[in-house]
């Protein structure tokens, strides 16, 4: 059973082939590291999967069903969630406010409905407890550490019952202790059957949580290997081009 299947997907920006004939398969509950030098096409690939724009050519299957997203909302409705490094949280809202942003729980009677803050806080507290994060639902995101912010963003995906979570450089700007925290969060996502695509420049992160690593160079996939069958040295060589393909 494959969750996500990309077949010979290409994306051009004018003359630039940002993505050039990419074929990848991802199974449920699998953590795939996506690595590559700057400009290799990682973010573009993620944006394709997340529905920011359609591919120029090639097909994409989710749960065996062909999909063509043109808006992120469409991808989200199909269970694809993206955790952006720091772009997708509102600093001036509470943790619970962010978790439920755009998916508010309402109460009331008849056509009169208003925000059910209490239920949202309780649900958010449950999600943080599941993730074993010390984030408190009422705290402002503005005052949170990088790790706690990640927990808020990940809690959002839990709420959405995502099947596939894409994380773009989640550990780029946080302290060492928090990196461990975020990697543990990723592990917990896998335990609950969610597939994760982890974009990272950090070799230790990829080698500690991922099941597989996909290496991209100039828009092409140059390697797609199980973690057990490769090494940081080999991946580094693939990224830089010292080794052509594997």
């Amino acid at each position: 059973m494959t969750l996500l299947q990309l077949n010979d997907v290409t994306r051009h920006f004018g003359a630039i082939k940002a993505i050039d004939g990419v074929t990848i398969n991802i199974k449920p509950g699998e953590i795939v590291g996506l690595m590559g030098d700057n400009g290799a096409g990682k973010s573009t690939l993620v944006k394709l999967i997340a529905g920011n724009f359609p591919p120029t050519s090639g097909t994409m299957l989710l749960d065996g069903e062909q999909v063509a997203f043109s808006k992120p909302v469409e991808a989200r409705d199909k269970g694809v969630e993206v955790v952006y490094q720091d772009l997708a949280l509102c600093d001036n809202l509470s943790a619970a406010g962010n978790v439920f942003l755009g998916r508010e729980i309402m109460k009331g009677f008849g056509p009169f409905r208003w925000l059910d803050h209490r239920t949202m806080r309780t649900r958010a507290a449950e999600l943080f407890a599941e993730l074993k994060s010390e984030t408190r639902p009422r705290d402002m995101v503005r005052k949170m550490s990088g790790g706690q912010r990640q927990a808020v963003a990940i809690a959002r995906t839990r709420l959405a019952q995502a099947k596939l979570v894409i994380m773009d450089e989640p550990t780029a700007a946080i302290s060492v202790r928090q990196v461990a925290e975020v990697l543990a969060l990723i592990g917990r996502l896998r335990d609950s059957g969610v597939a994760v695509i982890l974009i990272s420049h950090r070799m230790p992160d990829v080698f500690s949580v991922c099941d597989r690593v996909v290496v991209m160079r100039r828009g092409r996939v140059v390697a797609d290997k199980a973690i057990a069958q490769t090494s940081p040295e080999e991946v580094t060589a693939l990224i830089t081009g010292a080794k052509a393909a594997a």
Partner: peptide, 22 residues
Amino acid sequence: MTRWGKYVRAVGGNEHAARLTG
């Protein structure tokens, strides 16, 4: 207490994030 009010706040807090969440 309304979605509108929360969205007003969200737009002011981080417009890009607000857009990404639909």
